[in-house]
């Protein structure tokens, strides 16, 4: 598994290779779509983390249900796919770890990795906004 610190936040070359098109229209369409949808997924993940994934003693008797963990795994899986499509490598790596932890019901890893989301996502969002602006996307 690649070291997350060395991975690019957003690699446009991946996006261009995936779509087979380097036009500003394609790039802005893909990135704006990604930003809109990923924001929703990240919010859901953060909510799930706050409400379900707690390993501290106060919540020991409120362990997340299998359904909650399966939902988290599914959210991470979808977000991972989206990241792969636009070249958001760092978030993709994080989602991969989160998905595995959710599937294996590894609550400690899940909680630790969810904390990283609070760093990785704003960094990516800022990069997205900048790239969209550079490609003439009006609504940043």
């Amino acid at each position: 598994m690649a070291d997350a610190a060395t991975l690019p936040v957003l690699d446009l070359n991946v996006l261009i290779a995936m779509y087979g098109d380097d036009s500003a229209e394609t790039i802005t369409l893909a990135l704006s779509g990604f930003r809109r949808e990923a924001t929703h997924y990240v919010q859901q993940l953060q909510n799930a983390g706050q409400h379900n994934i707690r390993t501290d003693s106060a919540r020991k008797d409120h362990a997340p249900t299998d359904t909650a963990l399966a939902d988290m795994a599914r959210l991470c899986h979808s977000l991972k796919s989206m990241c792969g499509l636009v070249g958001a490598a760092k978030l993709m790596q994080l989602c991969m770890t989160l998905e595995q932890a959710a599937r294996q019901q590894d609550l400690t890893t899940l909680q630790n990795e969810l904390l990283k989301l609070a760093e990785v996502w704003p960094e990516l969002l800022s990069q997205l906004n900048l790239t969209l602006l550079q490609h003439g996307y009006p609504d940043v």
């Binding site: 779509y19 893909a30 779509g33 949808e37 979808s78 796919s81 499509l85």
Partner: peptide, 9 residues
Amino acid sequence: DDVVLMCDF
């Protein structure tokens, strides 16, 4: 695909 971005792609 249930992911809009992926489905559109």
